[in-house]
Amino acid sequence: MEEFIFLNLRMIENLKIAVLQVDLAWENPSKNRELFSEKIAAINQEVDLIILPEMFSTGFSMNAENLAEVHLGETFKWMQNIASQKKSAVTGSLIIKDDGKFYNRLYFVYPDGTFKTYDKRHTFTLARENETYAAGKQRLTLEYKGWKICPLICYDLRFPVWARNTEDYDLLIYVANWPETRIHAWDVLLQARAIENMSFCIGVNRTGVDDNKHVYNGHTAVYDCLGKALFENDNQSEFTQIVSLDKSHLTETREKLKFLQDRDTFSLK
């Protein structure tokens, strides 16, 4: 435990991240856990963070009554096990029932099993997500290995005020089930969030076709603080990609350009 705490607090210049773009099995948590277990086991190098898509155990389903897990339930424990095995943080969102309400809840699980949570703020009204899931009320900014990270979920991408970098985070993450029909918006908005917030920005999307006949074509991507692609791929196939983020590049760029110093001051209620 003491060794982990030291490693977690020590700032590392290069954060190595594994992003997993996967065709999810519809409403089948056990099959998806097995699928991700195989793909994560195949990662043959040390990474600091593993990022999974939105609702990675079920697909983007409104069938919360039958699919919801309790807070800290089976899939969360699976995430803890993966984090321990790989000595890496793991993040992604699940369908959770907590205090009588359903949430699209992201877990960020540290290698020692401790965790942070974020409930999706902007529920997707076009799919009537708002009629099933309660909206989150607080944004999460967490610290990991000297990096400040802000994890958000899918539809949150369309709302720049919610993502505005008022806390000097280093990395903005979106986990998603973003459909092919609006993938151009996904591509453009990910890049815009990186540029306007002067941070690294990662978007992890699924691929395949769900049982509602929605087609997902991936476009998982990683951008630096100037909007330059460190990784982008319009391939619809499944893949695991390792990307290294350079903290010195971020720091030097911010110090040189100082754009965040000119940002508007505001607070969200």
Rank of each mutant, 00 (worst) to 15 (best):
G73E: 06
E46N: 12
N28D: 15
L172F: 14
S57F: 00
L35H: 14
E238Y: 03
H71V: 05
E13Q: 15
T181C: 04
D112P: 00
K120Y: 04
L190I: 06
L9Q: 15
E232N: 05
E180G: 00
D99R: 13
Y133R: 06
L49K: 12
N205F: 10
I149L: 10
A134F: 07
N81P: 00
S88W: 02
E2W: 05
D187L: 10
R128V: 04
P151G: 14
W162Y: 09
L250S: 01
D234G: 14
E180D: 04
L94E: 13
R128Q: 14
G227I: 11
N44T: 05
K256H: 10
L9M: 11
A163I: 14
H214K: 14
E196V: 15
L49T: 11
V22P: 00
Q80N: 01
R128Y: 14
Y118M: 09
E255V: 00
K258D: 08
K87I: 13
R10D: 10
T125N: 05
M62C: 10
E180F: 02
G208R: 06
I43H: 14
I95N: 09
E74G: 08
G100V: 01
E34I: 02
N177Q: 11
T132A: 00
T132Q: 01
D224F: 03
P160Y: 09
V209P: 09
D170C: 06
T265N: 08
N104C: 10
A41W: 01
V188C: 13
F239S: 13
I82D: 11
P160L: 13
V70M: 07
E167R: 02
R128E: 14
V70E: 14
T75E: 07
E196I: 15
A89W: 08
G59D: 03
L24M: 09
T123A: 01
